[in-house]
Design a protein around this nucleic acid. Sequence first.
DNA 1: CGACCTTTGTCAAAGTTTGCACAAAGATGT
DNA 2: ACATCTTTGTGCAAACTTTGACAAAGGTCG
Lengths: 208, 208
Amino acid sequence: MAQEKQVPDIVVGRLPIYLRALTFLKTEHREITSSQELGDRLGISSAQIRKDLSHFGEFGKQGTGYDIRHLESNLKRILHVDRMWDVVLIGAGDLGHALANYRGFAGRGFRISAVFDKSTDKIGNEIVEGLVVEDVAKLSERVKEVGWHMAIVAVPAEEAQSVANTLMEAGVKAILSYAPISLMVPSGIRVEHIDPAVHLQHLTYYLG
Amino acid sequence: MAQEKQVPDIVVGRLPIYLRALTFLKTEHREITSSQELGDRLGISSAQIRKDLSHFGEFGKQGTGYDIRHLESNLKRILHVDRMWDVVLIGAGDLGHALANYRGFAGRGFRISAVFDKSTDKIGNEIVEGLVVEDVAKLSERVKEVGWHMAIVAVPAEEAQSVANTLMEAGVKAILSYAPISLMVPSGIRVEHIDPAVHLQHLTYYLG
DNA sequence: CGACCTTTGTCAAAGTTTGCACAAAGATGT
DNA sequence: ACATCTTTGTGCAAACTTTGACAAAGGTCG
């Protein structure tokens, strides 16, 4: 039943979680797992995991479960992270710094390949080995020249929409935004938002 | 219909987004808005916004819309951010640094009130004015003493589960984790995960 | 070999979430 | 004062998502 119909976005959103769990199991030198075990670890029902995976093919073996490396490589293929994506980062503040230095991207398909900021204090600085902060005024030009498809926005709320507009106009198709506003984008462009205060507020609701 | 039945978690999860949008409208010196306008800005249908809010009471006025300050203060009350929450941060790496320095928490109900790390290089450093990194070995003791209810975990994957266990054992009820693993927690404890690679992989699915 | 155990992939049912559509209430403008 | 416009809150139906259950397939072990 490989992708006859469009796969629900909510299912797609769980695949990276499954992939992460498989990579973790590998660090424990495990070779085989089951929907039951994955579900227990992730707090998801085993039926849901089987159903989700069934949208893309048959990866398991009855009576045994899933070969971890096999399922992992299939999920990487499905998510298109069986290649390396160059990502452009806008914002070289504390957060931009943390992202540029984050060691976790490489093993999961991503490389921060350029950093932009508007502050003259930061432009020209080598934020991390081999990565010099460029002037955001050159952003549009450089995106068109290099052809990046993905960007991470780590600028203050006031600047985020205008940076996003520049990126989209220059051809970027997917944005991960850390700015505490909801970016408005036309259909065809995909955005994900990360805002720690939103998550904390979701938690406090239940703290009564 | 104020909270007769339990409100779905998916609805609760949208409230902080609504709250953020209202705060943003205030920066534009707006006083009134409508479900239509909010929906357009957030990419959510107006009916959904009205329905979500109706779980908690009636906040709008027919023919007019919503008074921004009135709805904002109600949402703050509902989410329990009409007070300040002290949050303990574990991990004083680049990310911990960015979080400790983040100016955005204060206006939204949160204050990082202590930082812990295991590295002797970091313990004793003043990570930000008035906030000295403490030894994670003292974490349990200090949490029990002070009684924090919320924590942010910004340590490497290998240490995250054990830090979370310490926190829960010491009485923490809600955790925001930046570690790239799914924390296993008993029911009664709430966890939210932030993992940029997960979001990026969700995006690459659609980049074909 | 055969009995028994495990686990997948899938169907149908149950449960949840969203969106339409509209009455009621309030605004606006002549 | 009235017609017209706007916008809420909600009942209902449609769409979507999750779960339970099970046949089929494969493994284990005496």
